[in-house]
Amino acid sequence: MPWLVAFMVFLAVLAFALAASMHQVAGRWDKGARGTLTVQVPVSAADDGQALAAVLALLRATPGIASAEPLADAQLAALIEPWIGPLAAGDIPIPRLIDVRARPGARPDLESLRVRLGAAAPGTVVDDHRAWLGRLLALMRALEATALAVLGLVLVVTVGTVIFTTRTGLSIHHEAVEVMHLIGAQDSYIARQFAGRALALGLKGGAIGLMLALPALAVIGALFGRESGGILPEVTFSFLHWTAIGAMPLVVALTGMATARFTVLGSLSRIL
């Protein structure tokens, strides 16, 4: 029983940490992406920067847009390199990219912007990152939901285990329960004996689980930080998060206690 609770708390802490991290990452990406656009201007041999200049001028004149900066060639090359390898200038025509930032809170009208930019320089693409970010965000949210489901499952399994343990305890201590009942113990008095025991076991198991979960959390955090190479924004837990994690054993133990109490009361109500 204490080891089972320990395992449950261990799982609960990890699931909670995952859910909280995903929530944070998704939130940051969502917020970060909301204010940025990337505009792609095709280049052609005949063109020597006129299209780019026109698009830039148009963008900078658009209300709600804070800045529009073309990416330097070196930056572009660095972006592309992982995908197609190093390339010499002029190998293939690479569209110019413009990094656009909106003023905080402003939401430029993308449709009219597309039309106007298209007119200034045919083939210009305005990308608000929705497409790929949307999918990534959906993945994050799914992970978060899964983690929360695991958390819920942990509670359900805890309740189920406690019911089972209490039932077993009741049948083992059937004689003691009946004698206490016959010498005038209130149901609540008898239930208290079992609930108290469940609480003690729950706290003990919970403490063990938490003690195991914290180092695991640290290890996972370190691994992620190194492997993701900066793709994932850094996750920091607030005081509230830590409080929730610290409270996990307590929640599980209290759940166990309440479950034991109701199990005993239910079975006692069947005798006179």
């Binding site: 004689e175 003691a176 004698v179 206490m180 010498i183 005038g184 113990a185 149901d187």
Partner: peptide
């Protein structure tokens, strides 16, 4: 049912098989 425990406390019982609590 809830009024029975108070009544039972007014009754002392020596059971035939003692029924002491083993633990």
């Amino acid at each position: 049912r809830p009024s029975l425990p108070a009544l039972r406390r007014q009754v002392g019982v020596v059971f035939q098989e003692f029924r002491l609590l083993a633990h």
